[in-house]
Amino acid sequence: MNGFTAFFKKEWLEAIRNYRVLLLFSVSALFGMMSPLTAKMMPDILANVKVEGMVLKIPNPTFTDAFVQFFNNFSQMGMALLLLVFGGVLSQDLVRGTLIIPLSKGLSRHAVILAKYTAALTLWTSSYALAALIHYGYTLYLFRLVSVKHLFFSLFCLWLFGAFLLAVLLTASVIVRGSYGGLFVTVAGLGILLICQTIFRMERFNPLRLASENMALLSDKAAFDPLLTIAWITAGFILAALILAMAIFKKKSI
């Protein structure tokens, strides 16, 4: 337990001094502020772009447009940011050999995996929560009315997808060698999920839906129950990935 706490603290110090915290918090805050604002300003922006002989008819934006922006930003750039920021999460340690001393001091290998995941998860959770709060406040102010179904669950789904991504990244980094091996495998895995979803219509248990059906959930176009099932399955995946990571890491030559 001592080892976990000490290593967890070290992970946070690393996140602060290597600018991970700065990046995640500022970009999250930016997304939170920009999403409702872009939605609100869209008609004015488009009005400025005058096209000869064409009259652009734009319906008045509503708070749903704000949410469209928010989910778009987070499911694309947000996830890309998460991958970039945490891409070297374990790989860098292994490549540079910085774990040798802590491990020789008796740090348990399980603690390494758990501390790394917990630290990444708390960072992701807090920045995402910050973004969601700012976004909610701005939307409330700019559009007055916010009444949607399953708002919390929809936000939760995207958060869970982020948590899933981090778990996969960590596990891949345990298995694959090289500075960015884990990152490449994770991106490849995402690609496979995407192909499954778009080409083969394998959607029933696809975690990708957690990041692509958030709007549909809000507007009641997607059913709640199947997504809840996927959320449970994804939570199971996360757990399994972590257990796998710990088991493999325990037997890894350092």
Binding site: N18, L23, V27, L30, M77, L81, L84, V85
Partner: peptide, 11 residues
């Protein structure tokens, strides 16, 4: 904007 600093700090 935004992407530039992200790219610099991460890669």
């Amino acid at each position: 904007q935004i992407i530039g600093p992200i790219l610099y700090f991460t890669i």
